[in-house]
């Protein structure tokens, strides 16, 4: 279903199936009356190495769906498979980035990045040097021993990205990670994410409510409708890699934005 067809550059040929979601439904019991259906009938596949954004209005349940994929909350019904296994709990192949950086104020940058390695009991000299490399790759060389309170929001979110990548996850789950950042920082972070994805070959599922962000970074945009959320449209983005800021002004780009807007019911 989702086979990104790149005409140039990376990724080469991410064809292997990775994520499989079928009839995923999530409802919450309410004291009386019918249960509140958050998401309904979500069905799509994700190929290995692709970047899929879940685009939708706020409160539509896209974050709920991401948490179900990450095993943080169970689905009421439906099939959620990652790498051929049913997801019932978080897995160490997953890396998570939240809207807030969620750094620990008592840990230095490098110790924040190494937190997953400590939990997985994998902290050693190799892990430390990998953490250094990751921090350097997001432009934070020299900040290894700084505390979060000494860094800006954008820098903190870069550290959170390094922390999500430190244990080489196969699936990166990102919940509006750039939502709290200003526009310029946000665009920088989008390019950074694409760079990192190119190097790690991880599959990325990315929640956003920004149409242009979704189109710019994605191979696939899964548009969620208002609650109860269903997939309103499933848009293949066939813009070449590497993506660059100029592409935002291409007619194809605008057309894709327009299509997403129609699916969201914003434009006609």
């Amino acid at each position: 279903m989702s086979t990104p067809n790149h005409t140039q550059g990376w990724p080469a040929a991410p064809l292997a199936p990775f994520g499989h979601f079928k009839d995923v439904r999530q409802s919450f019991g309410r004291g009386s009356g019918s249960p509140l259906v958050a998401i309904d009938n979500i069905t799509f596949d994700v190929t290995q190495g692709s970047l899929v954004t879940l685009l939708g209005p706020s409160g539509c349940g896209k974050t709920t769906f991401l948490k179900i994929v990450g095993g943080l909350i169970p689905a009421t019904s439906g099939t959620v498979q990652i790498n051929g296994r049913n997801v019932t709990a978080p897995h160490e192949d997953f890396g998570v980035v939240f809207q807030q950086a969620n750094l620990m104020p008592w840990r230095t940058m490098i110790d924040n990045v190494l937190f997953p390695m400590e939990i997985l009991k994998l902290r050693d000299a190799t892990a430390v040097s990998r953490a250094r490399e990751l921090l350097a790759s997001v432009g934070l060389e020299g900040f290894e021993n700084a505390y979060p309170s000494q860094l800006s929001g954008g820098m903190q979110q870069r550290v959170a990205l390094c922390r999500a990548l430190i244990h080489r996850p196969k699936l990166l789950l990102m919940d509006e990670p750039f939502g709290a950042l200003d526009e310029l920082t946000r665009m920088e972070m989008q390019d950074l994410l694409l760079d990192i994805r190119a190097k790690t070959n991880a599959t990325v599922m990315f929640v956003t409510h920004s149409i242009s962000e979704a189109v710019y970074i994605s191979d696939i945009v899964a548009v969620f409708s208002k609650r109860p959320a269903v997939i309103a449209d499933f848009i293949k983005v066939e813009l070449p890699y590497p993506r660059s800021a100029e592409m935002r002004y291409l007619p194809e780009f605008t057309e894709l934005e327009h299509r997403a807007g129609r699916a969201l019911g914003i434009t006609r």
Binding site: L72, P90, H91, E92, N102, M104, F115, P116
Partner: peptide, 10 residues
């Protein structure tokens, strides 16, 4: 958020 992070890492 920190508790959720810890939970995601089991």
């Amino acid at each position: 958020g920190l508790l959720e992070l810890a939970r995601a890492l089991r």
